[in-house]
């Protein structure tokens, strides 16, 4: 059963919280809620609060849509909540936190791959002519 966005999860005041994704799509259609829960809870358990959404599939304008409740995110970070790595990366891209190094890594690896592909194509065309 879906829990309301305000969350129904029970939690202890001093327990470890985490801001992470909860998958809410269906088969072959991922859709994520950005939620804050107790760290030991499983994904489908009731959450303390929903802090945003993330749609990993591009829409018709080739955009991946993200919504963040910045006020509450800052609040829960102030409470000492942890942040999972994918969410960390997302926050980095959104400008809330510094950009995560893995994003730089994937970026330079992609650039390198594109360069290599271009080089190969050039070589192929040179050998053909």
């Amino acid at each position: 059963m879906l829990s309301p966005a305000s969350g129904t999860g029970r939690f202890y005041r001093k327990s470890a919280k985490i801001i992470r994704f909860a998958r809410h799509g269906c088969a072959n259609r991922p859709f994520f809620h950005i939620v804050v829960t107790e760290r030991r809870r499983t994904q489908k358990m009731p959450v303390i609060e929903q802090l945003g959404t993330f749609d990993p599939l591009e829409n018709e304008h080739n955009e991946k849509l993200v919504s963040l409740n910045l006020e509450r995110i800052i609040y829960w970070m102030g409470c000492g909540a942890h942040i999972s790595r994918p969410v960390d990366q997302l926050f980095g891209l959104s400008g809330l936190l510094p950009i995560h190094p893995t994003l730089y890594m994937t970026a330079w690896r992609n650039r390198k791959e594109i360069e290599n592909q271009a080089k190969e194509e050039n070589n192929e065309s040179a050998t053909k002519t």
């Binding site: 800052i74 609040y75 970070m77 102030g78 409470c79 936190l97 510094p98």
Partner: peptide, 12 residues
């Protein structure tokens, strides 16, 4: 991240 988190916690 450490400094940012510390700042946010202090503000909170």
């Amino acid at each position: 991240m450490k400094s940012i988190k510390r700042h946010i916690v202090e503000r909170f």
